[in-house]
């Protein structure tokens, strides 16, 4: 792991209708980590990701991607939104959704061609969905839809991947397949940040973790900070999970 900082969040405060959902967050995420963001419902996990992506404007503070504002760096960042954020009845195919990942590098007006199609097919193959390329997206299962979203992020070939609950509503096989791809990304030196719900799997899947509940509770390597103390601080109840490190 290099000492380069992929994402730095400084004094970030985000409010909906004057009610803070993220309060004075400071965060430095080193390049090349596979990091989970954990916290209870309403802790602001998705909001943090969306603030990093400049989708939500903070009322205070700033976010830098490799030292520069997001606007100048968007080609280095790939985003996997929550599966429920789109309408899967949209008239399009799996391949077409993955192709959308190439739009960022194309910019305005220019249309995707053979090169983009080839990249999309490769990404589909990586997530094991090549045989479904022509299928209408509503005809895919929840796990398959999640893989399509992952393929769409892979095709962007970015340095940073931000994922909002990629394991939600997927079967065990898909979860394993996804985590293997995430680990491969880390091996390739990418920074991967995942909003995660299943505390049991944190030590197995991730090497870095951020505890969040409106304020940042802790951030650091899983082996140093994933303990009952931080879990209790984050979830507000006396948390006793037996964690096998």
């Amino acid at each position: 792991m290099s000492e380069k900082i992929a994402i730095s969040v400084d004094d970030l405060t985000v409010a909906y209708n004057y009610k803070p959902v993220l309060w004075d967050i400071d965060l430095s995420i080193p390049e090349g980590v596979l990091m989970a963001i954990v916290g209870p419902n309403g802790a602001g996990k998705s909001t943090l990701i969306k603030s990093i992506l400049d989708i939500i404007k903070p009322i205070a503070g700033s976010v830098k991607i490799f030292g520069k504002p997001y606007k100048k760096q968007h080609e280095h960042v790939a985003y996997v939104p929550q599966k429920g954020s789109v309408d899967w009845d949209f008239p399009t195919t799996a391949l077409d959704v993955v192709m959308m990942g190439t739009y960022g590098s194309l910019g305005w007006i220019k249309r995707p061609g053979q090169k983009q199609k080839k990249a999309a097919l490769e990404a589909l193959e990586k997530v094991g969905m090549l045989e479904f390329k022509s299928r209408q997206i509503s005809q895919l299962s929840g796990g398959q839809q999640q893989r399509i979203f992952l393929a769409r992020a892979l095709v962007q070939n970015s340095s940073i991947y931000l994922m909002d609950e990629p394991f939600q509503g997927v079967d065990a096989t898909t979860e394993k397949a996804i985590i293997n791809i995430l680990k491969e990304l880390r091996k390739a030196g990418k920074t991967v940040i995942v909003v995660h719900h299943d505390l049991q799997t944190v030590p197995e899947y991730f090497d870095w973790v951020t505890f969040l509940n409106v304020k940042k509770i802790a951030t650091g390597p899983v082996k140093d900070i994933f303990n009952d103390d931080n879990l209790t601080k984050t979830y507000g109840i006396n948390y006793k999970v037996s964690i096998q490190q």
Binding site: L53, H74, M100, G104
Partner: peptide, 13 residues
């Protein structure tokens, strides 16, 4: 893109 996935459209610029 913006009809299907507003969030992605925004992050891609």
């Amino acid at each position: 893109l913006s009809t299907f996935d507003k969030g992605l459209a925004a992050t891609l610029g």
